[in-house]
């Protein structure tokens, strides 16, 4: 034991700071937790939807992959089927393109135009995109096709969020 005596004033100071600190922490902790929660919750597993496509069956030729999920829209829950054009690049990277034309929202097809078999084709106003989804100059679309984020799990292809080209 030290010989230094703790004065009454010091004792009160210590205890009040201690107790006050606990009280402040008790109030602040939940607030901080609430504030950082969106950051911690980001990138949850459920954003990805399983498809029926096996990764090993993918080729360098874009294949049509349908996938469905339940969408809650206000008070109305429905099963939505979406489509993606999926292929492997030469270095084995998987690319999943959205089939929604960036002009006015029609559905594009791979090789839909006989004169341009190696391009995506929009039947509405003859818009075209190259294989990597870039819009062909001189056709109506003004931006490249959107891209889905992809994931592989147990050899099955999972598709995630749809993002503008270059962000996925």
């Amino acid at each position: 034991m030290s010989k230094r005596n703790v004065s009454r004033r010091q004792f009160l100071n210590y205890t009040l700071t201690g107790v006050g600190g606990f009280m402040a922490a008790g109030m602040l902790m939940p607030m901080v937790r609430f504030a950082v929660d969106p950051v911690l919750a980001g990138g949850s597993e459920s954003d990805f939807v399983a498809t029926k496509q096996k990764i090993k069956d993918l080729s360098t030729e874009p294949t049509r992959v349908d996938f469905s999920f339940t969408q809650v829209d206000g008070w109305y829950e429905s099963e939505v089927t979406n489509t993606a054009w999926v292929y492997k690049t030469k270095d084995g990277k998987i690319v999943a393109l959205s089939p929604i034309c960036k002009h006015l929202g029609c559905t594009v097809d791979w090789g839909g135009d006989k004169e341009h078999p190696e391009q995506f084709f929009c039947p509405c106003h003859y818009g075209r995109y190259t294989k990597d989804g870039m819009n062909v100059k001189g056709t109506p679309p003004i931006s490249p096709l959107d891209v889905f984020t992809t994931k592989e799990k147990d050899g099955i292809l999972y598709l995630g969020q749809r993002k503008p080209h270059g962000e996925a």
Binding site: H103, L104, G105, C106, T107, P123, C124, H125
Partner: peptide, 11 residues
């Protein structure tokens, strides 16, 4: 008709 609309939305 909804499926057709989906395909040809822009036209």
């Amino acid at each position: 008709s909804m499926e057709i609309e989906k395909k040809f939305k822009g036209r």
